[in-house]
């Protein structure tokens, strides 16, 4: 037992190792391979897996409506509590009728984007009238996420997938444990606490997503994004909305939530150092 707390969690030292457990057991990187995600390690160091995300995105919202699916996410990538990158796009067009939105680790999202893009290019190159539709991409994403959690090295995200296929609107989410979930409304991260009740209430009042017009749905999502910005300390006022309908995908330019909020209360507040 090493009784020096400063050594805890660090690779053991060969000279001072009394139980001769150094070098530690580790995955050898296969020959000719530089580095595979979740495989191998710097020499002499134990294999380590992601145990927490680093640069993160917060909530992603998704909502079905009459003619399609809407998704919304802000443009912030936080480094801990620091608002580090303010112009990151967290909604990504996968195909003509599919959009993926990501909360959680941004670099893992970039990796998954790369996988999906590679997959779609393969489909395009086959040039045989077939392409992966939203439910197929969802299944693929599910396999990836479950596979990685089974290696005890999950991709630290909750993904939202929205799309239209054969006249059906599709909205689903998959978390870092590979749990798939489909619902007329979806909110990840802190948004699951803040936005889910609003979205579900609105859907209940409308009597289902098929009674929701695009205008109503968009208004509702913006309202949810506003609440998320006001109450979620990892969120940003800058956000984008994606719409997937039978016409295809459109992802908006970034919008600003600030004009929708009122901050003039502070002008008359006295005390508290003001």
């Amino acid at each position: 037992m090493d009784h020096f707390p400063t050594n805890w969690g660090n690779p053991r030292n060969e000279d001072g190792e009394s139980y001769n457990t150094y070098p530690m057991a580790s995955n050898k990187v296969p020959q000719g391979v530089q580095q595979i995600a979740g495989y191998g390690h710097a020499s002499g160091h134990p294999t380590t897996h992601t145990q927490s995300p680093v640069v993160t995105g917060t909530s992603v919202l998704g909502l079905k409506f009459k003619d399609g699916v809407l998704m919304a996410a802000d443009n912030l990538a936080s480094y801990g509590s620091l608002a580090r990158f303010r112009d990151v796009e967290r909604l990504h067009k996968v195909s003509d009728f599919t959009v993926i939105g990501a909360s959680g680790d941004i670099s893992d999202f970039q990796y998954v984007k790369h996988l999906l893009d590679a997959q779609m290019i393969k489909e395009y190159n086959a040039d045989d009238g077939h392409s992966l539709a939203t439910p197929h991409v969802f299944e693929y994403l599910w396999r990836i996420m479950y596979n990685r959690r089974s290696k005890m090295n999950p991709l630290w995200n909750t993904f939202v997938l929205g799309g239209v296929h054969k006249g059906e609107n599709f909205l689903g989410a998959i978390d870092l444990k590979g749990t798939p979930y489909q619902s007329p409304s979806i909110a990840t991260g802190f948004g699951s606490h803040l936005a889910t009740p609003m979205l579900r209430k609105a859907l209940d009042n409308a009597g289902g997503s098929e009674n929701l017009t695009r205008e109503e749905a968009e208004k509702l999502l913006v309202e949810c994004m506003k609440v998320c910005w006001l109450r979620d300390a990892r969120s940003s006022f800058k956000y984008q909305i994606a719409a997937i309908t039978s016409q295809g995908v459109s992802i908006s330019e970034p919008h600003d939530l600030r004009p929708l909020t009122y901050w003039e209360h502070g002008r008359d507040v006295r005390g508290y150092g003001a």
Partner: peptide, 12 residues
């Protein structure tokens, strides 16, 4: 079926 939940197109 496993990977994409899609029947493999015959042409492929």
């Amino acid at each position: 079926k496993m990977l994409y939940d899609r029947p493999l197109p015959g042409s492929r």
